[in-house]
């Protein structure tokens, strides 16, 4: 009966602030900010000694060469190479890959049918009659973008070139997504994204860097 009247002494909490300050400082020291952004690429399989490099028709070839003085040269098929700026690369690559006007200097277009794709099993596309994005599309299936560097090329420029080329593909997929599905690429579900990826597969081949004798 008398118990309920007894007052519980309050705990002195004035040092909690100090304790949490110490914890805070500890975490500030041992951790680092998340800086895991980057350009996601897939390298080709290691070269096999016996295997002949696949033959590529000249018109299907788009060569980007970055030299030791960090100049960029673009060669289309057997045309004369010309020096370009990094910022031009994206549009050049897009014109090359799409070949909208069906010109002889750009890669040959082939008819491809968009089918329903199961993202988990990309080897076996399943045709589905209810699939809204299906239909025919003209794509340059056999194009190759060949990227060559010198051993002395600066990494930042190489990165910029890669980023431009990847952005070209990203924009092409995005416009296909908008045309076929009425949504931007990022808003599509996994299967529809795979459809766009298969329509514009990334075909960037990287040759070994050249080492020129001085």
């Amino acid at each position: 009966m008398g118990k309920s009247k007894r007052k519980v002494p309050g705990i002195n909490a004035s040092s909690t602030a100090d304790i949490s300050f110490i914890l805070l400082i500890f975490f500030l020291v041992v951790t680092s900010m998340n800086s895991s952004l980057g350009l996601d690429v897939r390298l080709p399989k290691p070269p096999e000694d016996e295997a002949e490099p696949p033959k590529v028709f000249k018109r299907n070839n788009f060569t980007v060469f970055v030299n030791m003085n960090n100049q960029i040269m673009v060669t289309l098929g057997d045309k004369e190479g010309e020096e370009v700026e990094v910022s031009d690369l994206k549009d050049l690559a897009k014109t090359f890959i799409t070949n909208r006007d069906n010109l002889d200097i750009y890669p040959a277009l082939e008819k491809d049918t968009i089918v329903y794709v199961d993202a988990a099993n990309e080897e076996h596309p399943l045709p589905a009659s209810s699939f809204e994005g299906r239909g025919e599309i003209m794509v340059a299936k056999k194009h190759v973008i060949s990227l060559q560097t010198d051993r002395a090329t600066q990494y930042q420029l190489y990165f910029d070139v890669q980023a431009q080329l990847y952005e070209a593909y990203t924009e092409l997929r995005d416009s296909l997504a908008k045309a076929r599905f009425g949504k931007p690429f990022d808003a599509l579900d996994e299967n529809d994204q795979m459809v766009c990826r298969l329509a514009y597969p990334i075909m960037i081949s990287e040759a070994e860097p050249r080492k020129y004798e001085k």
């Binding site: 399989k45 051993r151 990494y155």
Partner: peptide, 27 residues
């Protein structure tokens, strides 16, 4: 960013040999 491509290509070649084909160029 100021590194030269020579060493980067060497590393990439080793990664290909090791079968590590998924690469992220951190930026």
């Amino acid at each position: 960013q100021h590194a030269d491509m020579g060493i980067v290509t060497d590393v990439k070649m080793e990664l290909r040999q090791a079968g590590a084909l998924n690469v992220l160029y951190s930026a």
